[in-house]
Protein backbone atom coordinates (compact mmCIF):
# COMPACT_ATOMS: atom_id res chain seq x y z
CA UNK A 1 0.00 0.00 0.00
CA UNK A 2 2.85 2.37 0.86
CA UNK A 3 4.04 2.18 -2.72
CA UNK A 4 0.51 3.03 -3.89
CA UNK A 5 0.65 6.30 -2.01
CA UNK A 6 2.74 7.58 -4.89
CA UNK A 7 -0.22 7.18 -7.22
CA UNK A 8 -3.06 8.30 -4.95
CA UNK A 9 -3.96 11.94 -5.06
CA UNK A 10 -5.22 13.80 -2.02
CA UNK A 11 -8.60 14.28 -3.74
CA UNK A 12 -8.95 10.52 -4.24
CA UNK A 13 -7.97 9.86 -0.64
CA UNK A 14 -10.58 12.31 0.63
CA UNK A 15 -13.32 10.54 -1.36
CA UNK A 16 -12.63 7.30 0.52
CA UNK A 17 -11.72 8.97 3.83
CA UNK A 18 -13.92 12.04 4.19
CA UNK A 19 -12.47 13.55 7.33
CA UNK A 20 -12.70 17.15 8.52
CA UNK A 21 -10.21 18.91 10.80
CA UNK A 22 -11.17 20.55 14.08
CA UNK A 23 -11.84 24.23 13.53
CA UNK A 24 -12.05 27.13 15.98
CA UNK A 25 -12.68 30.86 15.70
CA UNK A 26 -9.85 33.38 16.06
CA UNK A 27 -11.19 34.81 19.30
CA UNK A 28 -11.42 31.43 21.07
CA UNK A 29 -9.56 31.21 24.37
CA UNK A 30 -6.82 28.68 25.06
CA UNK A 31 -9.06 26.95 27.60
CA UNK A 32 -11.80 26.49 24.99
CA UNK A 33 -9.29 25.11 22.50
CA UNK A 34 -7.84 22.66 25.03
CA UNK A 35 -11.36 21.46 25.96
CA UNK A 36 -12.23 20.94 22.30
CA UNK A 37 -9.07 18.98 21.57
CA UNK A 38 -9.54 16.81 24.65
CA UNK A 39 -13.15 16.09 23.70
CA UNK A 40 -12.15 15.21 20.13
CA UNK A 41 -9.02 13.33 21.23
CA UNK A 42 -6.92 15.28 18.76
CA UNK A 43 -3.64 17.22 18.74
CA UNK A 44 -4.33 19.73 15.98
CA UNK A 45 -6.79 22.57 15.71
CA UNK A 46 -7.10 25.02 12.82
CA UNK A 47 -8.22 28.61 13.12
CA UNK A 48 -10.74 29.97 10.61
CA UNK A 49 -11.69 33.56 9.87
CA UNK A 50 -15.23 34.92 9.42
CA UNK A 51 -15.26 33.74 5.76
CA UNK A 52 -14.36 30.22 6.89
CA UNK A 53 -10.88 30.48 5.42
CA UNK A 54 -8.18 28.67 7.37
CA UNK A 55 -5.68 31.21 8.70
CA UNK A 56 -3.62 29.31 11.25
CA UNK A 57 -2.85 26.18 13.24
CA UNK A 58 -2.33 25.45 16.90
CA UNK A 59 -0.94 22.24 18.33
CA UNK A 60 -2.05 20.78 21.64
CA UNK A 61 1.50 21.25 22.95
CA UNK A 62 1.47 24.94 22.16
CA UNK A 63 -1.91 25.42 23.85
CA UNK A 64 -0.84 23.52 26.95
CA UNK A 65 2.46 25.36 27.25
CA UNK A 66 0.43 28.58 27.32
CA UNK A 67 -2.09 27.23 29.85
CA UNK A 68 0.69 25.94 32.11
CA UNK A 69 2.86 29.05 31.74
CA UNK A 70 2.72 29.78 35.48
CA UNK A 71 4.49 26.48 36.13
CA UNK A 72 7.53 27.52 34.12
CA UNK A 73 10.37 29.35 35.88
CA UNK A 74 11.43 31.51 32.94
CA UNK A 75 9.20 33.60 30.72
CA UNK A 76 9.90 36.31 28.19
CA UNK A 77 8.04 39.63 28.23
CA UNK A 78 5.94 38.32 25.33
CA UNK A 79 4.95 35.18 27.19
CA UNK A 80 4.09 37.23 30.29
CA UNK A 81 1.73 39.48 28.34
CA UNK A 82 0.13 36.49 26.60
CA UNK A 83 -0.45 34.89 30.00
CA UNK A 84 -1.92 37.94 31.70
CA UNK A 85 -4.16 39.02 28.84
CA UNK A 86 -5.55 35.54 28.10
CA UNK A 87 -4.21 35.47 24.56
CA UNK A 88 -6.66 34.38 21.87
CA UNK A 89 -6.24 31.65 19.26
CA UNK A 90 -5.48 34.22 16.58
CA UNK A 91 -2.68 35.75 18.66
CA UNK A 92 -0.90 32.48 19.33
CA UNK A 93 -1.60 30.47 16.17
CA UNK A 94 1.05 29.62 13.62
CA UNK A 95 0.03 31.43 10.42
CA UNK A 96 2.63 29.43 8.47
CA UNK A 97 0.96 26.09 8.96
CA UNK A 98 1.44 23.05 6.72
CA UNK A 99 -1.43 22.06 4.40
CA UNK A 100 -2.12 19.88 1.40
CA UNK A 101 -3.70 20.62 -1.98
CA UNK A 102 -6.19 18.28 -3.64
CA UNK A 103 -3.98 17.60 -6.67
CA UNK A 104 -0.92 16.53 -4.69
CA UNK A 105 0.00 12.88 -4.15
CA UNK A 106 -0.07 11.32 -0.69
CA UNK A 107 3.68 10.75 -0.84
CA UNK A 108 4.32 14.50 -0.92
CA UNK A 109 1.89 15.05 1.89
CA UNK A 110 3.24 12.38 4.24
CA UNK A 111 6.69 13.97 4.26
CA UNK A 112 5.17 17.35 5.17
CA UNK A 113 2.99 15.81 7.85
CA UNK A 114 5.90 13.98 9.49
CA UNK A 115 8.27 16.91 9.19
CA UNK A 116 5.84 19.27 10.97
CA UNK A 117 4.62 16.60 13.44
CA UNK A 118 0.95 17.00 12.50
CA UNK A 119 -1.62 14.25 13.02
CA UNK A 120 -4.45 15.87 11.06
CA UNK A 121 -3.23 17.74 8.02
CA UNK A 122 -5.72 20.18 6.59
CA UNK A 123 -6.51 20.05 2.85
CA UNK A 124 -7.23 23.43 1.30
CA UNK A 125 -8.79 24.49 -1.97
CA UNK A 126 -8.77 27.87 -3.64
CA UNK A 127 -8.34 30.88 -1.32
CA UNK A 128 -7.56 28.63 1.63
CA UNK A 129 -11.10 27.24 1.80
CA UNK A 130 -11.42 23.97 3.62
CA UNK A 131 -11.77 20.67 1.71
CA UNK A 132 -10.99 18.14 4.43
CA UNK A 133 -8.20 16.59 6.44
CA UNK A 134 -5.77 13.71 6.15
CA UNK A 135 -5.40 11.75 9.36
CA UNK A 136 -1.99 10.21 9.89
CA UNK A 137 -3.65 7.42 11.85
CA UNK A 138 -5.71 6.42 8.79
CA UNK A 139 -2.71 6.53 6.51
CA UNK A 140 -0.89 4.14 8.83
CA UNK A 141 -3.96 1.90 9.13
CA UNK A 142 -4.28 1.66 5.35
CA UNK A 143 -0.61 1.00 4.99
CA UNK A 144 -0.64 -1.83 7.55
CA UNK A 145 -3.74 -3.44 6.00
CA UNK A 146 -1.87 -4.22 2.82
CA UNK A 147 1.44 -5.27 4.38
Amino acid sequence: MTEDFEHISVAEWLKDHPEMPIIAAGDASMTQLAQTLLAENSRDIYIADDDNKIIGHLSFGRIVSHLFAQHRPIQSHRQLFAQITDATAQELMDPHFAYARADETLCDVIHRQLERDIDNLVVLGQDHHLLGAIKLRELVTESLKSS
Partner: peptide, 18 residues
Amino acid sequence: TIGGSVTIEQLRRLGKVI
Protein backbone atom coordinates in the same frame (compact mmCIF):
# COMPACT_ATOMS: atom_id res chain seq x y z
CA THR B 1 11.82 42.14 22.24
CA ILE B 2 10.16 44.55 24.68
CA GLY B 3 8.54 46.51 21.84
CA GLY B 4 7.19 43.36 20.26
CA SER B 5 6.11 41.70 23.48
CA VAL B 6 2.59 43.05 23.33
CA THR B 7 -0.05 43.78 20.72
CA ILE B 8 -2.33 46.81 20.84
CA GLU B 9 -5.26 44.51 21.55
CA GLN B 10 -3.40 42.91 24.48
CA LEU B 11 -2.58 46.38 25.85
CA ARG B 12 -6.31 47.18 25.81
CA ARG B 13 -7.04 43.99 27.72
CA LEU B 14 -4.40 44.65 30.40
CA GLY B 15 -6.92 46.44 32.56
CA LYS B 16 -6.94 49.59 34.63
CA VAL B 17 -5.25 48.18 37.73
CA ILE B 18 -2.12 46.93 35.93
